[in-house]
């Protein structure tokens, strides 16, 4: 049976979700909610968008990806395994002593991880530096930076946003994982952040902006195309997502920001995901 590109990317996203759940289950700790919300975005980035080669993870001309919300590391490890940077079986060592898969991504331990992250708010500045280097060296590579919506409460993001636009970094694409939840509750209630207010902020900082459904593969693909066509301006894609997406009892529940699944929950979660296969 032939499947479309969109269906293939959906299947990959589903496998990424299975690996997220499995690795966190075996780690007995981790952040499932915000990892599940970015699975579709990562599937499109790594399998349709970025110019990368798992055989040459240090290639100077490769596109770069920064997971600024580093606590969603299980999703990054899962997509890198799916892309065959390393074996999928290794993912169960997540967060164990001697494992390369640290609780937050370490660029010196895992091939394919372009930047070490963990303390929120720092990734966009780093992405700017990479995008500037690309332009200085006329290498043409693009830089993708995934931010959490709660993360936008960090002031450094807005220092960096001024820089992205001042230097017209049109090779930079920011994706905001707008799942509208942070550890303690709704981003709107905590700091007045919701998809429309976020888009307005990036627009006023000089970004080309778009609001999309962050679980709709076609919309994600089109948004990246639009970003590539945009000149003289950085792009910010506000991706409306659901925290815990794909697992019924986790969806939109902030309690699943940072806890592992027990045996029964793991079984149920896998059943739900397997039914999509």
């Amino acid at each position: 049976m032939k499947i479309t590109k969109v269906e293939a990317l959906e299947k990959r996203a589903n496998r990424i979700r299975q690996d997220i759940i499995t690795s966190i289950y075996y780690a007995k700790s981790g952040h499932p909610g915000g990892s599940l919300s970015i699975a579709d975005i990562l599937s499109v980035l790594y399998f349709n968008e970025m110019n990368i080669n798992p055989l040459k993870p240090d290639d100077k001309s490769r596109d770069r990806f920064i997971l600024s919300k580093g606590h969603s590391a299980p999703a990054l490890y899962a997509v890198l395994a799916e892309k065959e940077y390393f074996s999928r079986e290794d993912l169960v060592t997540l967060r164990h002593i001697d494992s390369p898969f640290q609780g937050h991504p370490d660029m010196n331990k895992v091939p394919g991880v372009d930047m070490t992250t963990g303390s929120l708010g720092q990734g966009l500045s780093v992405a700017n530096g990479m995008a500037m280097a690309s332009k200085m060296d006329r290498m043409g590579y693009r830089v993708y930076c995934l931010l959490g919506d709660g993360e936008l409460e960090e002031g450094q993001i807005w220092e960096a946003a001024m820089t992205s636009s001042k230097y017209k970094l049109d090779n930079l694409c920011v994706i905001v994982d707008a799942n509208e939840l942070q550890l303690i509750g709704k981003t709107d209630e905590v700091k007045g952040l919701y998809p429309e207010s976020i888009e307005a902020k990036f627009q006023s900082f000089g970004f080309n902006t778009m609001m999309i459904d962050g679980h709709n593969i076609e919309e994600i693909m089109k948004a990246f195309e639009n970003a590539e066509m945009t000149k003289e301006k950085p792009t910010a894609i506000i991706a409306k997502t659901i925290k815990g997406k794909g697992i019924s009892f986790m969806e939109n529940n902030p309690a699943w920001h940072g806890k592992a699944l027990n045996d029964e929950e793991y079984k149920k979660a896998l059943e739900e995901l397997n039914s999509n296969d």
Binding site: D114, Q122, G123, V126, A127, G129, M130, M132
Partner: peptide
Amino acid sequence: GTAAGLATCG
């Protein structure tokens, strides 16, 4: 942060 990004690119 910008300096860190530049350093990753040589």
